[in-house]
Structure formats: structure tokens, C-alpha cells
């Protein structure tokens, strides 16, 4: 187990280095001279050549690229992601202020998704090819295909504008959380339902289930005690894999519902051309994603001993 964890940690360090190279390179994707663009964003259109040079020196853009990268990486490792030119606050502070809102939304979305997916996936698998199965699988495809930004708008139209039951924007009470969480969770539930269904179907085909049935156990016991328990192991991976969709979905959901999370911060920073903040958000989100994947892999290896001995 320890070897496995160490190997995964080594891989994570490598991946994070790669992530840092890509994130750093993004600054150089800015069309034109980055120093000039940043100077214009900071000080307005009428800037002098001196101002541009000042910005270039300040950001170290006059140095060779490898020096720029190593300096940037060293700063990042010390928790310095630069300053937002819009608010003049450290990028890391901006992100950490918004983090609880995103985590709250992601957890609520995941909860909604599991509340829908576990029962529907179970019914679908245990009654394979029945009308219930066909309807749930059709519903799942519908859910995967429905743009979450459209679903969000429809929910707002119905529950907020038409019925007036729930608030449209912002964060505060539990009422504020319902629509964003349902929007985020529904799309994910579609994918999770299919995965849970196939996971249960796989377990149902195992010899020990046949044995349990041959012993004359009641179908309920076979399903709840023998099948579900084993089928839920991959759910850990599912939940982990869904983290990417959660973060992706959260960006749009946060924009629609004016939810003050990292996704909305990223979109706002893009429109404000706040490059340091864009860079910081991307790096932070990728780091979160890599870390969650690592935790999922480790917990999965803990739950399923076969993985530990798997030769890659």
C-alpha cells in the first residue's frame, strides 16, 4: 500500500509540474506584448513606453523565459500567486474567499446527484430491460444532453419568476442553494445513474451472487446485502471522476445564479482581462482536481486490494 501511495505521489508531483508549465505558458498566449496588455489593463489606454517597461520589469517579463518560470514557480510554492489588478488584493486571498461557496455548491450538487442516481440506478439494474429501466436510461441520456445553463434558466423561470418560491440570485440561506444545487446535480445524476447501473449489473453476474441465490436467499437480501455493498466500491471512483464535471458545471451554474464561487471569479477575471487572477484560478482548480483524484485513487486502492497489486 505504501509503495502504491508513494508512486501515486511521485506521479502527482510530476503532473503538477506539467500543470504549472501550462498555466505559466498561458500568460504568453495573450495576443501582442503581455507587458503592454497588462499595463493597459492596469493604467488605461493612455500609457507611456516607460510605464510598459516598468510593468515588464516588475513582472520579470524582461528576463529569459526559464528565469521567469523558475521565479514564478518559486513564488507559487511560497503561496504567492500575484496580485489581482482589478482589486489590488493577492490572488490567493481572492480565491480562498470564494472557495467555501464553490465547495458548498459542489457538495450540494453531489448530494442531489446521489439522491437521484443510487435508487434509479439500482432499480434500473435489478429490472434490466424492463419499462422502468428503459425510462431511466432514456432519462439519463436526456439529462446528459440537456445543457445545464438551460436547465438553470428553466428552473429560475418556473420556481422563481413564475411561482416566486425561491430566490433567483445570490448566496445566503438554504433557499438560495436549492436551484443551483439541483441544476448542478441533475446533469451529474444522469452520468452517475448509468455508472451505478453498470456497476450493479457487473456484480449481479458474479459467481457469489449466483451462490447467494442458489442458497435460496430472498432477492431483497441478495440485492441489498450482497450486491449493493460490492457495487458501491466503484461509486467512490465515480464520485471522484465527477469532481471534474462538478467544477466545470459549477462555473456555469455560479454565473447563472450569481453564486460567489471560484467559477464565477474565473469568468469575471476573464472579462476583466485580469491575467494574474485567471492564471491563479486555473492553477488552483487544477491542483484541487489532481489532489481529489489522488485521494480517490488511494481510497479506491484501500477499498479494493486488487488495485494495490496492479502492474501498470
Amino acid at each position: 500500500m505504501l509503495t502504491y501511495v508513494l508512486r501515486r505521489l511521485g506521479l502527482m508531483v510530476f503532473i503538477m509540474l506539467g500543470v504549472s508549465v501550462i498555466t505559466f505558458s498561458m500568460m504568453h498566449l495573450v495576443p501582442g506584448d503581455p507587458a503592454e496588455v497588462i499595463a493597459m489593463e492596469r493604467y488605461g489606454e493612455e500609457i507611456t513606453a516607460e510605464t510598459i517597461e516598468h510593468v515588464r520589469r516588475e513582472l520579470g517579463l524582461d528576463q529569459p523565459i526559464y528565469v521567469q518560470y523558475s521565479r514564478w514557480l518559486s513564488n507559487v510554492l511560497h503561496g504567492d500567486l500575484g496580485y489581482s489588478h482589478r482589486t489590488d488584493r493577492p490572488v490567493l486571498d481572492e480565491i480562498l474567499t470564494r472557495l467555501p461557496a464553490t465547495i458548498q455548491l459542489a457538495l450540494a450538487g453531489m448530494l442531489v446527484s446521489l439522491i437521484i442516481a443510487i435508487p434509479v440506478g439500482t432499480i434500473s439494474a435489478t429490472r434490466q430491460y424492463s419499462a422502468a429501466d428503459n425510462i431511466s436510461m432514456f432519462g439519463a441520456l436526456l439529462g446528459v444532453s440537456m445543457p445545464n445553463f438551460w436547465l438553470g434558466l428553466l428552473l429560475i423561470m418556473f420556481f422563481s419568476v413564475h411561482l416566486g418560491w425561491l430566490p433567483v440570485f445570490g448566496r445566503g440561506s438554504i433557499e438560495h442553494l436549492i436551484l443551483p444545487a439541483v441544476t448542478l446535480g441533475t446533469g451529474m445524476a444522469a452520468i452517475t445513474t448509468r455508472l451505478i447501473r453498470s456497476s450493479i449489473l457487473e456484480v449481479l453476474g458474479q459467481d457469489y451472487i449466483r451462490t447467494a441465490r442458489a442458497k435460496g436467499l430472498k432477492e431483497k437480501v441478495v440485492i441489498y446485502k450482497h450486491t449493493l455493498k460490492n457495487a458501491m466500491i466503484p461509486v467512490v471512483t465515480i464520485v471522484g471522476l465527477q469532481f471534474a464535471s462538478l467544477l466545470e458545471g459549477a462555473v456555469i451554474v455560479e454565473v447563472i445564479f450569481a453564486w460567489p464561487g471560484i467559477g464565477r471569479l474565473l469568468v469575471d477575471s476573464i472579462f476583466a482581462r485580469d491575467f494574474m487572477l485567471i492564471q491563479g484560478c486555473i492553477l488552483f482548480i487544477a491542483a484541487m482536481f489532481v489532489l481529489v483524484n489522488l485521494l480517490v485513487d488511494i481510497s479506491y486502492a484501500y477499498l479494493d486490494p486488487k488495485i494495490r497489486y496492479e502492474v501498470k
Binding site: 506539467g18 500543470v19 501550462i22 466545470e248 491575467f275 482548480i285 483524484n293
Partner: peptide
């Protein structure tokens, strides 16, 4: 494959969002 690993470390739409956002 390591380049693939690194690119897959980003949630796809978010990376696309950042690239498109920076390019304009």
C-alpha cells in the same frame, strides 16, 4: 502520454474557458 496526463489534469471546459478567455 505524460503530456496527455498533464492536460487531463485540468477539467476540460475550464481549461478551454481560460484559453479562449486569454486569446479573446
Amino acid at each position: 502520454m505524460r503530456i496527455v496526463d498533464v492536460l487531463l489534469a485540468f477539467p476540460g471546459i475550464i481549461l478551454a474557458l481560460a484559453i479562449a478567455g486569454i486569446l479573446g
